[in-house]
């Protein structure tokens, strides 16, 4: 059930990136998509348990798997920096293309 919601988030993000005309909206959609992916990792990490894997006195507790969590932490940082970089690019582009419609930018810059 949760898996379906998570995958729906990924798809929503993807279709947003595909169908939205505005560049900023596309980038936000991409962020939604990556949120879905992050949630998917967290979901898979919690298959065997929910407890935070920290050394303590407690015995026989069902821990969450730390590996996907560690991996997705890296991916979050990378995704965040890429997004920052893209928004800087968008700010530069916005000076000459105030509407930020991708079709317009593409027409004036590449064809």
């Amino acid at each position: 059930m949760l898996e379906a919601f998570v995958l729906a988030t990924v798809l929503c993000g993807f279709f947003g990136a595909l169908l939205k005309k505005n560049l900023v909206m596309k980038i936000i959609s991409m962020d939604i998509m990556s949120t879905g992916v992050v949630a998917f990792y967290v979901l898979i990490a919690s298959r065997n348990g929910l407890f935070t894997p920290i050394i303590s006195d407690a015995q026989n507790i069902a821990y969450a798997d730390p590996v996907p969590q560690a991996v997705i932490l890296t991916a979050i940082v990378i995704g965040f920096s890429i997004q920052a970089l893209m928004l800087v690019g968008v700010m530069k582009l916005a000076r000459d293309n105030p509407t930020l419609e991708t079709s317009e930018i593409e027409k004036s810059n590449t064809l």
């Binding site: 990136a17 890429i82 530069k92 582009l93 930018i105 810059n109 590449t110």
Partner: peptide, 16 residues
């Protein structure tokens, strides 16, 4: 502008 746009579409496509 042109180079930024070309770079952006590359970054966007590969990130998705």
């Amino acid at each position: 502008d042109r180079s930024i746009w070309v770079g952006l579409r590359y970054l966007f496509t590969s990130n998705i």
